[in-house]
Simulated assay, not measured.
Amino acid sequence: MAHSEALSPTDTVAKRVREVRKRRGLTAEQLADKLREQGVLWDRYTVTKLENGKRQNITLSEWLTLAAVLNVAPTHLLLPVDGGEEAYQVTPTRTERVEQVRGWVRGHWPLPGANVIQFQAEMPEEEQGKIHLPPTQDRAARIDDIERSMAQLSTALQHLRGEGADGEGL
């Protein structure tokens, strides 16, 4: 995907904050007041700078506090709620479709090409092994990722058991 066309995380948060703030009937000053009550020392100018794209970054604490005071899931500030096919900037050099990133952020599946077993290993134990199906057009690629991860695991197990490549013990 072309990087220049991708939605950035900060731009998306800015757009979503403005949309939700207006839907809630809050002014920039009122939102700033609510943020200050929660320990984020913003004024209306900071809110306006974010919403107008003049603020390039927000901290994780600011993002979570914005979500809390606006009563919206943090994921729904970070990612567009529509446009699943749009490109989204995951890192400064990597973009993926919004729909794919949403599943990754929610912990449903790793980003394309990632090791599925490593991804699952970092989940809480009660979530490991749960199946979340990726979007239909991504399933073939996800199956390939899982098969590649399983092959790597199989090779690692053979080495741990002291077996050679032919399956015979060493």
Rank of each mutant, 00 (worst) to 15 (best):
L50G: 00
E51V: 05
V20S: 00
K34L: 14
L66Q: 07
Q56T: 12
A67Y: 09
G53W: 11
L41S: 10
R36W: 04
L60R: 05
T27P: 08
W63I: 01
S61T: 12
A28L: 00
G53M: 09
R16A: 01
R21K: 14
Q38C: 09
L35V: 03
A32H: 06
E29V: 03
T48K: 11
V20W: 02
G53R: 08
T65N: 07
E29C: 00
R16T: 03
K22L: 14
A14E: 03
E51R: 08
Q56M: 09
R55N: 09
A28Q: 14
I58F: 04
K15S: 11
R55Y: 05
Q30D: 08
A67T: 04
S61F: 05
K34W: 04
R23G: 10
K49T: 01
K15Y: 10
L41Y: 05
T46L: 03
V20D: 01
L64Y: 11
L64V: 03
R16S: 10
L60C: 00
R23S: 13
R24I: 09
K15E: 12
E29R: 15
S61Y: 04
T27N: 09
R21G: 02
T27A: 07
D43E: 10
T65I: 02
E37V: 07
A28K: 06
G39F: 11
R24H: 14
E29A: 14
V20G: 01
K15N: 12
R23E: 14
V40M: 05
E29G: 03
K54D: 08
L66C: 07
E37S: 13
N57V: 06
K15T: 14
R44K: 15
V20H: 08
Q56G: 14
K34P: 00
K54F: 05
K22W: 01
L41T: 05
R55T: 11
L50V: 02
V40K: 03
K22T: 13
N52E: 12
R24V: 10
A14N: 06
W42V: 02
L64H: 09
E51C: 06
D33W: 04
T59G: 13
R21N: 05
K54Q: 14
A67G: 08
G39Q: 12
Q30I: 03
K34E: 11
L26C: 10
R23T: 08
V20R: 15
Q56I: 05
K22V: 12
V40Y: 02
Y45K: 13
L50T: 02
T59S: 15
T48Y: 09
T65F: 07
Y45I: 03
L60F: 06
E19M: 03
T48W: 10
N52Y: 08
T65R: 14
Q56K: 15
T59V: 06
G39S: 11
L35E: 05
D43F: 03
K54P: 00
K34H: 11
E29S: 12
R21C: 06
I58S: 04
E37M: 12
Y45E: 13
L31F: 07
L60S: 05
D33S: 03
T27G: 13
T46W: 07
E62Q: 14
L31T: 10
E62L: 02
R44M: 04
N52R: 15
Q56S: 13
V40R: 06
A14Q: 08
R18G: 01
T46S: 13
E51S: 10
V20P: 02
